[in-house]
Design a protein around this nucleic acid. Structure first.
Lengths: 361, 361
DNA sequence: CTGTTAGCGCCTTCAC
DNA sequence: GTGAAGGCGCTAACAG
């Protein structure tokens, strides 16, 4: 046995098989496409044998070129580091499997330039459609898809000016659910922490819904009303993160002060509402570094997204129906590929509140 | 503005561009391939204009078909749920970017059947090479790659009977490093917890190295020697997990007993050495459920892999050079694609011990 | 410098 | 039933 990986020998083509089976290419093609009814059992057997002997496998590139469709769809991911993305992907894969599609996964790793390049690439490979979890910057980058380009379905976030189906979390309902949970549990200093949200629709919606829910208290602004704040955390900028966390620290310390002074049950209790898992992780790491292992005694943490460490640390979360989001996205796309022409649809799926120790006092 | 995503209009072909520019296909092709020197500035300008006007983008399928190479490589992943995988992927992507390759990511999601299907698919798409983080079951499934098939590079684990380059962690050194750390910190009841390892080379090596390191104590088996155990945790089988964890519980309780009885400093101290992050997570979740939030006071946990929650929970880890593993894998593969014919190579990269509170007493 | 010609591997009429 | 011929979009000799 050789220990040297060999160079690839030329693969057999349909012509080789035809020769080997002593017939024409047409019959081979028919065999490949399952048109068995028009093949004599005898010929069929010969073809089968020839294919096996040559270890023949049809070249999909060539087939795609000829037929004009290749059953390929693109899956453009903003950030695989986010567990959300991986979970959505599982739904996508399952649906593709079921519908006979093959997803080409492209990971932009939060870089706009990458997103652009991959989109270009998917286009030149003539994928039949694209599922886009866009970075969200601007419509511009997404020029080739949606509208006049190849069919597209947006996941998690819509993009201004881009007409396409979209599926994701019901952000308004989710943020409201979380906010109400915190209010119901008596927190009176609530910080909604979110990455820069001007460009990302889902973040916008969550933040807006948070503020509305805060305003919907029985006596907003009143003496017993909880106070809401929005804090922007730009995870891509260490300096900015530093600054924002410092602001948070001051607020937490101030609340503790109140508590010490009052020494009663009606001290200020602060809760952090993270707009997604990456933010929640950043917050948790910081709090742990600052207050030690029992940081949760000082601050409550609630997060949209339900990362694997949430259960471990007892953090309350709002779990997104990630698998279904991915699955539905593919279904939508498939319909578009098959020619459905309805107006752009939105599919908003509900999140599920998972209450853990963190927000129970 | 319409709100209905339109159907894809037919894309322009090279012939269209030639007609539009009033020239032949050859010149267009030359332009596309950057052979500017043989094009008059005037013709070149006309081509440029025509391409822009038609929004032409060359069809990669056709190019690939013609040239016989498509710059595509397959990346077969066993489990994207494992943070390790995502990190390796980042290295792969960076390297591909640098080398002008395009990775087709395929996620087997721990299903052998998926692995087989994707491999088949990659083959029929004539990718130029494959990077395989195999499920590891048997050489059989991997028939199409390595050896006589398309060039392949294995990641993390080798597969019996499959001759191919491989890159991964130096498992022996890593397991030894971890074991020694635990011994040095005075743990005397050490459990190496690992998924079924008969089929997966990296797990085998880690387990073997653990046992060896235990035997290498100054007085193995002696009165003051630490005792080592191997526990198999089949994460795919809930019942089995239950059973294994129960065994662990008994051991931990027994150790506690010893401690209570002795009521001195020389009581049995137990440490868990998880062979990878999924195992570590399973253990941590169980321990937390059983002993509450301060489970770490009862048991120490050390894990190969450094998931994001490790820092948060203070678990000691051995971090793999994941990014570099991915990067090197692509480099190896690229060399093979370019025709390098050396014997199969192994590239073992060192892990880094990250000491956290969990294993310090 | 530029265009013509012949395929790459496969599918699809259209005859036999 | 079966096969020959033409073409999908592109590239790579060849001629001019």
């Amino acid at each position: 046995m050789s220990t040297t990986p060999q160079a690839t020998p030329r693969r057999a083509t349909i012509t080789d098989v035809a020769r080997e089976a002593g017939t024409g290419k047409t019959s081979i093609s028919r065999y490949l496409n399952g048109e068995m009814s028009v093949l004599s059992p005898e010929l069929r057997a010969r073809i089968e044998a020839a294919i096996a002997r040559l270890d023949y496998q049809p070249n999909q590139m060539a087939r795609g070129l000829k037929r004009g469709r290749n059953r390929l769809i693109g899956m453009l991911l903003a950030d695989l580091t986010n567990p959300y993305t991986v979970e959505v992907l599982q739904g996508v894969e399952a649906a593709c499997h079921a519908l006979g599609l093959m997803p080409l996964i492209c990971h932009a790793a939060n870089e706009v330039e990458m997103e652009r390049r991959y989109l270009q690439l998917l286009t030149t490979y003539r994928v039949e459609g694209v599922i886009v979890n866009a970075l969200g910057v601007r419509e511009e980058t997404l020029r080739p898809v949606g509208g006049g380009g190849i069919p597209a379905v947006l996941v998690d976030r819509s993009v201004d000016g881009l007409v396409a189906d979209m599926v994701g979390l019901d952000n308004r309902a989710a943020a409201e659910l979380g906010t109400r949970h915190l209010l119901d549990n008596g927190f009176d200093d609530i910080w909604f922490v979110v990455q820069p949200f001007e460009q990302v629709s889902s973040r916008q919606l969550r933040e807006a819904a948070f503020r509305e829910a805060m305003s919907a208290q029985s006596d907003p602004g009143g003496k017993n009303a909880a106070r809401g704040h929005t804090l922007v955390l730009n995870l891509a900028d260490a300096v900015d993160v530093e600054r924002s966390l410092a602001e948070l620290d001051r607020a937490i310390d101030a609340a503790a002060h109140t508590r010490d002074a009052a020494a009663t049950g009606n001290a200020a209790r602060v809760a952090l509402f993270a707009a997604n898992a990456p933010v929640a992780l950043c917050l948790a790491l910081h709090l742990k570094a600052r207050y030690g292992a029992d940081w949760q005694a000082r601050v409550a943490l609630l997060s949209i997204d339900d990362p694997e460490w949430a259960e471990l640390t007892g953090v309350t979360t709002i779990r997104q129906p990630t698998y279904e989001i991915g699955y539905r996205a593919v279904e939508f796309l498939h319909e578009r590929i098959e020619g459905v022409q309805t107006t752009a649809r939105d599919c908003l799926l509900p999140g599920e509140l998972i209450v853990r120790a963190s927000t129970l006092r």
